Amino acid sequence: MGPRPIAKPASSREPDGMRQSVEIGFPLGAGSYAVTRWGGPATVAAPTVIAAHGITANGLAWAPLAEALPEVDFVAPDLRGRGRSRDVGGPYSIAAHADDLVRTLDHLGVERATLLGHSMGGWVAAVAAVRHPERFGGTVLVDGGLGFPLPPDTDLDALLDNLLGPAMAKLRTTYASREEFLAPWRGHPSLVDVYSPAVEAYQARDIIGTEPEVRSACVLEAVRDDAADELRNPEVVGAIHRLPGRAVFLHAERGLLNEPVGLYSPEVVAAAKLEDAGIDVRYVAGTNHYSILLGDRGVTAVAEAVRALL
């Protein structure tokens, strides 16, 4: 099981009225692996859900959903190379993240959990389910985990800049203050209608350094390596079609910048024939790639999907 984790109050305090969480860190690689946990052992019979976030996100992205699932022991790591796990180091790959989820369960003394993944975390959850079927009881994929055909000569950096836009730009930018870092996200086209104290806390967790030089905690190498793996590795791309247990795939109506067409259009999802693999497919109208996780409408839909598997 390794060394016993040390729980401490999360230094990013929850906004008033939010569910209490603790931050747990344990040694991994070259650093410490950070995990936020809502509920925990005090909820004696609670089922555990472990959640993997998106490619430039961190564990606090799950706070609104953890709030909506008070009956659940909700566990959300900062994946290696992000947030407070930035110093863990490589190798960076979807399989490495999947194995880190199992290491997290081991350190928490949890034998079995339901998997949840958003965006890149969808691939992490799918690969974890395939690699470790004995540890996971079901999988919920939120606007992620379904691969795209990618020509071999695709310029990965150009693709990421085009797809992620502001999320990639922040990795290459030094900001004069925390306020300068946070201001663009308050007006982000996909967040402006759902921005809240919980969303601000999630964004603020990504800040490292001291004024007048602050920047994102995300390691650019980790983002590039993970993106290449999720887009080009057949084992990762095909994992969604090999899920060993019950699964739900939710896809948002709108895109990463609130474009009218989502990351997964209904036509793309239909062509994937996920139902043939036994996956429950759910279209979440009125949401985009981020609000499906951070807004009330999306949180309600994801919470219903999680409860369906518990």
Rank of each mutant, 00 (worst) to 15 (best):
D153W: 04
P189A: 09
G122A: 05
D229T: 08
A158V: 03
V219C: 12
E213L: 11
T174E: 11
G209K: 14
T173R: 15
L220H: 09
A176S: 14
D143V: 05
E180I: 04
A198Y: 01
V219F: 08
A222V: 05
V142I: 14
V124F: 06
Y175A: 01
D153C: 10
T139V: 06
P197W: 10
T154S: 14
L141K: 00
F136Y: 09
P212L: 10
S190V: 01
H132E: 12
H188S: 12
H132C: 15
L182G: 05
D229N: 13
S196A: 13
A217T: 15
A125T: 06
H132T: 12
G122F: 04
T210S: 08
D225I: 00
W123E: 03
P151Q: 07
K170F: 12
D193F: 10
G187Y: 10
R178L: 13
I207T: 12
L116F: 03
S119K: 08
R131I: 06
D206L: 13
A129G: 12
G144A: 10
A222T: 09
H118W: 15
G117P: 02
P197I: 08
V124N: 07
G138K: 02
G209H: 15
E213G: 05
E213S: 13
D226H: 01
L163K: 10
A125P: 04
V219H: 07
H118S: 12
D153V: 10
A169T: 13
V214H: 09
L141Q: 01
P189F: 03
D225S: 11
W123M: 07
P212G: 00
D157L: 12
R172Q: 14
R215W: 00
E179V: 05
D229G: 05
P189D: 10
V127C: 10
A167W: 06
L141R: 00
D193A: 15
G117L: 00
R186H: 09
R205W: 03
V142G: 09
R178P: 06
L156A: 04
P197F: 10
G122M: 04
G209I: 09
L220N: 01
D143E: 15
G117H: 03
G145D: 05
L159N: 06
D143L: 11
A228W: 05
M168F: 00
F136Q: 03
W123R: 00
V223P: 04
S190H: 01
A169Y: 07
A158W: 01
A217C: 11
L146A: 02
R178D: 14
Y175L: 06
D225E: 15
A167P: 01
E180G: 04
D155G: 08
L141M: 14
P149W: 07
L164D: 10
T174S: 09
A126D: 02
V214P: 11
V142Q: 08
S119E: 07
